[in-house]
Design a protein around this nucleic acid. Sequence first.
DNA 1: TTGCTCCTCACGTCACGTGAGGTGGC
DNA 2: TTGCTCCTCACGTCACGTGAGGTGGC
Lengths: 287, 287
Amino acid sequence: MSQTTTGTDQLMTIGAFARRSRLSLKALRLYDELELLRPATVDEWTSYRYYREDQLERARLIGLLRRLDMPLERIAQVLELGAPEQVDEIGRFWREVEGSVAVKRRLVAYLERYLEGRGDTMYEVRTRQVPEQQVLTVSRNVRQPELQPFLMEAMSDLPRALEGTRAKTDSHCFAIYHGVVSADSDGPVEVCLPFEGQIEAPAGTRIRIEPAHNEAFTTITLAQCVFPGILEAYDAVSSFIDRQGMEPIGSPREVYFVEHEKVAENDPFCDIAWPASPARKGAAVTV
Amino acid sequence: MSQTTTGTDQLMTIGAFARRSRLSLKALRLYDELELLRPATVDEWTSYRYYREDQLERARLIGLLRRLDMPLERIAQVLELGAPEQVDEIGRFWREVEGSVAVKRRLVAYLERYLEGRGDTMYEVRTRQVPEQQVLTVSRNVRQPELQPFLMEAMSDLPRALEGTRAKTDSHCFAIYHGVVSADSDGPVEVCLPFEGQIEAPAGTRIRIEPAHNEAFTTITLAQCVFPGILEAYDAVSSFIDRQGMEPIGSPREVYFVEHEKVAENDPFCDIAWPASPARKGAAVTV
DNA sequence: TTGCTCCTCACGTCACGTGAGGTGGC
DNA sequence: TTGCTCCTCACGTCACGTGAGGTGGC
């Protein structure tokens, strides 16, 4: 009943294992607690952790994935996969990172233009009266990634819903942003199609009256319609409203007056519009 | 004594300012506390915060910089600069980000190769006896960015320090990594030059005896010497030590046997070496 | 009076770093 | 006995999010 050990199943203390895995003691204790990497043995009396050499591979992989800033939860998922799927999953994660870096890269370029050209008026903002309209609408809570698909879907569904009914439209869709749409805020967004005639609202849609209002708007190109440049157009409209002594009312909207497919990068593509009170009269003097 | 206000110096509540600046209430309160963006006025009795319209520009710039994940402290620095210097500073920050993304990109490529080729032996590891050596050394605590300059400096200074003395060397430098060198760990690193003869240690250097030892080592090319590939070489040496039933002793080292400038990407450039006890005899059986 | 907006704590998030205070084995 | 290593809390970091519990103005 003698029992001896070979080189490979020698146990290491946490300190030795930390040096050889390039992980900190604190990290190892955390990974133990999270069941991401449990020690081979834990002494019942002293609570000392002991690791086996063959656990180094897992430990080092965790360390490398953490260098990519992959969250521990996602690392746990990766570790459950076989090698080829691990490569896929790491690739997926990395493409997400590259995507967000690409967005930021555009933002840096935008900031440079913006800071160098401060004071330039790059957008012509005007006002217009919009009469009361009957609209067929679809609302949804969407975040940034799902926004584009939702808009496409809604803008093809709404006109189709009117086909073969007594309703008719000669108008185009617009989208009202009732809440902020971003990576962590989900709107809601309401796509509206103005129409005339009396019908029942098809499933998933609503019919309502969009009241008459005054709005400030600017027309932008397809190229300007992409983040982060589009924020600049919103800011331009918003500043215009202030400078005119008007008050913003309700939520901003985008009016798509041509189809996405039929427009070149630098052609007018949509209006950024914000309802507002009429210009205040008799803005007074500060004494 | 009548006092009225024009459109532009109207005060906004925190809610209105939040919507128009695309910042959250919580963020605005934090920026107030950190003095990054103080409200124009705070009501003495209710503690209500009121903002002016001309504060929107600053608020939006903060928001855009946060989208780049620029830390608030750094944003505060940027805000103190004039527009051209702001562009420079944002550029500097962004180059740092792109740099760290580039490192991670290499790490992803490495992980793919590693996971696909698991089991391949890509490094030939052997052992050698190193006799006792008298060494002239310089130590320093350096982090990743300062490592390369320090190595270059030390490897040109040490041989120069021996010129014109009775000491002579026919050896090359090696670096001992007494601690981890990374973005947040600073070694220390000790660069050593073996020599013969008796001299006084020049200022900033030490003379000591590096004891005789056995070491496991592998030779890598200049291309393999760059992160993250170099970790793989360390791991190979470390695994070899385990599999031989040896015990690692002391700290790993890099032996630079040719000059950096004189070597092509795929030529042998240095050894990764780790002192270790001799192979254990009579590794026994598990019953 | 009812909503809505504002306020100030206080705690949670994420992946650890950094002590404090104490034990265990050579 | 002295060092060294290990242990478990507990608190700090960073930039907020998310209530709880309460007040203020229309």
